[in-house]
Simulated assay, not measured.
Amino acid sequence: MPSSDGAAYEGFADTFAREASTSAYNAHYDRPTVLDMLGDLDGKHVLDAGCGPGLYLSVLLARGATVVGCDQSADMVRAARAQVGSRVPVRQHDLDAPFDWVADSTFDIVLLALVIHYVRDRVATLAELRRLLRPGGRIIVSTSHPTADWITAGGSYFEAGHVEETWSGGMTHRYWRQPLQAWIGDFTAAGLALERLVEHQPADSMAREHPSTYGKLNREPGFIAYQLAPARS
Results as ranks from 00 to 15, higher is better:
176 W>Q: 06
187 F>L: 03
192 L>W: 08
192 L>Y: 09
195 E>R: 15
216 K>D: 15
189 A>H: 07
174 R>H: 05
197 L>Y: 06
204 D>V: 15
185 G>C: 01
218 N>L: 09
195 E>K: 02
178 Q>D: 09
207 A>P: 04
183 W>Q: 04
179 P>I: 07
182 A>L: 12
184 I>F: 14
201 Q>N: 05
185 G>A: 15
181 Q>G: 02
195 E>A: 09
209 E>W: 11
214 Y>E: 00
203 A>D: 14
219 R>H: 14
215 G>K: 07
189 A>F: 13
181 Q>E: 13
181 Q>K: 10
225 A>S: 10
183 W>C: 02
197 L>C: 12
185 G>S: 12
173 H>N: 13
225 A>C: 05
214 Y>N: 00
194 L>D: 00
205 S>W: 04
180 L>C: 07
180 L>P: 08
212 S>K: 08
224 I>H: 00
176 W>G: 04
211 P>M: 07
224 I>K: 10
201 Q>L: 15
206 M>C: 01
176 W>L: 14
220 E>I: 09
208 R>L: 13
178 Q>M: 15
187 F>Q: 00
188 T>G: 11
195 E>F: 09
198 V>I: 01
216 K>I: 13
182 A>T: 05
197 L>V: 15
192 L>H: 06
214 Y>T: 10
200 H>P: 01
209 E>L: 09
211 P>E: 12
174 R>A: 01
195 E>Q: 06
199 E>P: 05
205 S>Q: 12
211 P>I: 11
205 S>A: 15
181 Q>V: 13
185 G>E: 08
211 P>V: 11
210 H>V: 00
193 A>R: 08
180 L>K: 00
194 L>V: 14
189 A>I: 05
187 F>I: 07
214 Y>A: 02
197 L>H: 09
221 P>T: 04
191 G>Q: 07
194 L>R: 02
217 L>A: 03
203 A>M: 10
173 H>F: 15
184 I>Y: 12
183 W>V: 00
213 T>C: 05
175 Y>T: 13
223 F>Q: 02
204 D>S: 13
196 R>Q: 15
180 L>S: 14
175 Y>H: 13
178 Q>K: 15
174 R>G: 02
203 A>Q: 04
212 S>L: 10
218 N>W: 03
212 S>D: 13
172 T>C: 13
212 S>H: 06
207 A>I: 06
178 Q>E: 10
197 L>A: 14
214 Y>L: 04
223 F>E: 06
178 Q>V: 03
213 T>G: 04
206 M>I: 02
173 H>A: 10
225 A>Q: 03
215 G>P: 08
184 I>K: 12
221 P>M: 07
191 G>V: 11
202 P>Y: 02
216 K>M: 12
194 L>E: 01
187 F>T: 00
204 D>F: 03
190 A>P: 04
191 G>F: 05
219 R>L: 15
220 E>P: 02
220 E>F: 10
215 G>R: 15
205 S>T: 12
193 A>E: 10
181 Q>T: 09
183 W>F: 12
204 D>W: 11
180 L>H: 06
217 L>T: 08
216 K>P: 00
207 A>W: 03
221 P>I: 01
217 L>I: 02
181 Q>M: 11
